[in-house]
Amino acid sequence: MISSDWLLSSEPASRRQAAWGRRYQAWLAFRRNPLAVAGLAVALAMLLMAVFAPLLATHDPGAQNLANRLQPPSAAHWFGTDELGRDVWTRILYGARITLGMVVAVVLLVAPVGLLVGCAAGYAGGWLDRILMRVTDVFLAFPRLILALAFVAAMKPGVESAVAAIALTAWPPYARLARAETLRIRDADFIAAVRMAGASPWRIVLRHVAPVCIPSLIVRVTLDMSSIILTAAGLGFLGLGAQPPLPEWGTMIATARRFILDQWWVPVIPGIAIFLASLSFNLLGDGLRDVLDPKQR
């Protein structure tokens, strides 16, 4: 039933067929961009690594061996050992869970909040718009890392507060974006039609306005993923990120940076992991943007 003919039909028989057709065409366009495909492949590979970490790992991520610290890569330790003699390969694998988990958590926090604030402000207008936008402005005007830092210091350092802190600094642009999109379609005919049919404002925002904003939001999210990883690493650098013994990549690189001159592989390996993850998300986001968000190309 699902064939490329069905998908590419210029006269779709149903809404579903039309929707799938659009997606398929987007995929075709996406596939033409080799870098984006590479990004997707690396991102997927990392996801799989995270999921299957216990199967792929060669050691216990927390097992210390003080007598065997800072060893170079070898057959026993593929990526060497860290400052407490733990296996770096294993920690990179388990770290993928934490780092990617943090990214997902931030996204899950930020995107709905930004979407809701932006859509509500844009659709309602008036005082609600003004209040929400002032709040957004305040958070935008804040030095970002400082806000995150203050927040983490106020809670206690750790993965949860790092996620919350990064989310706190990351939502305003989403609100702005969603608001701009909402303003663009607020007076469109189909919204007017829904309104005439008696839909409540909440229903309109949630069912009709928000979905329209989602593509540009997805693009933004994908492009932001690398910033999230990097901010987490920055918090780690200042001692306030995920806390050891958790093998979060940013924290690993931050705590191991003092070895960069003599035992360079200890910081460089998580560095490569971060680099690959960021790069793949960036390439993926760039590719998605070309496809999903043609006006912004």
Binding site: G62, Q64, L66, E83, L84, P157, G239, L240, Q243, P244, P245, T255, R258
Partner: peptide
Amino acid sequence: YSSGAPISDIAQAIQA
């Protein structure tokens, strides 16, 4: 414990 080196390393060793 405070999160800078070497205290954080020592803290982890003591934890183990």
